[in-house]
Amino acid sequence: MSISGSNTWLSGLFVLLVLLFTVSVAQARQEGSANSTVGGITTDEYHIGVDDMVQVEVWRNPELSVTVPVRPDGMISVPLIGDVSAGGRSAQDVARDIEQQLAEYVREPKVAVILTELRSHEFLSRVRVTGAVNRPVSLPYRQGMTVLDAVLEAGGVNDFAAAGRTRLYRKDNGGATRSLPVNLQRILRRGDLETNIEVQPGDVITVPERAL
């Protein structure tokens, strides 16, 4: 093989390797955004909420890449295409939607949507105490928090409470609500912690009033 032919072959191989590397980087970026976590939450299963911060990256088009908050109407603003619905959707769904709309202006756009701050999650994950307590409250969830912790934050039960019939309401993964019995009277008066359940994000604790 001549020297010029060898150089041509090596140049072609170099170009091929560069192309393969570029495609690999693009795929890794998108897969990384799809499977990333923020605050311990897997974002591929998370539904975007109001006030969440969303980073939109358009490959090879940095002028179209932005970091924006989700507005109260559930929309985000993206350069060139304007408003895009994001509230209640996954990051992957929003990315595909943006790709389809950008396709009118950009050739084969590749879009990654990354959640940088899950601000709405803090609201959704709060623990609420209602009913016959001295101060109904909505508390930020803390790991290890129990029913007793939450009730004490609410100032304890009032004089009209039927503490023995307290219930804890919890949504399962399918969206159905379960009702768990809590004998708050035994917890408070006897120190019986059998029903002092460890709460989960989104739980609602309700202390009913006694029948007069």
Rank of each mutant, 00 (worst) to 15 (best):
K110E: 15
I187P: 06
Q27V: 11
R189K: 15
F160S: 10
I48E: 00
N196Q: 14
P181Q: 06
P136W: 02
N183K: 05
P72M: 04
R178F: 00
A86G: 07
R96S: 10
F21S: 13
A163D: 02
Y169S: 06
K171P: 03
V204L: 02
G49K: 06
Q200S: 06
V94G: 05
R142S: 13
V78E: 00
I187Q: 14
R165E: 12
M53V: 08
Y46S: 10
A28Y: 13
L193A: 09
D93A: 08
I114L: 14
E31R: 14
T42F: 05
A176Q: 13
V56D: 06
I114S: 15
R128M: 12
R167N: 09
A28R: 15
S85F: 11
A161I: 09
T116N: 14
G131E: 03
L124C: 09
R142T: 14
S33I: 10
Q200L: 12
W9P: 00
R210W: 08
G12N: 13
L19C: 12
F14R: 06
P208I: 02
Y141R: 05
A211M: 12
I205F: 04
R126M: 05
T43N: 01
P79M: 00
V78Q: 03
L102W: 07
E63N: 10
G88L: 06
V127L: 10
S11Y: 13
I41R: 08
N173K: 12
G82Q: 00
A161S: 11
T116C: 06
R135H: 06
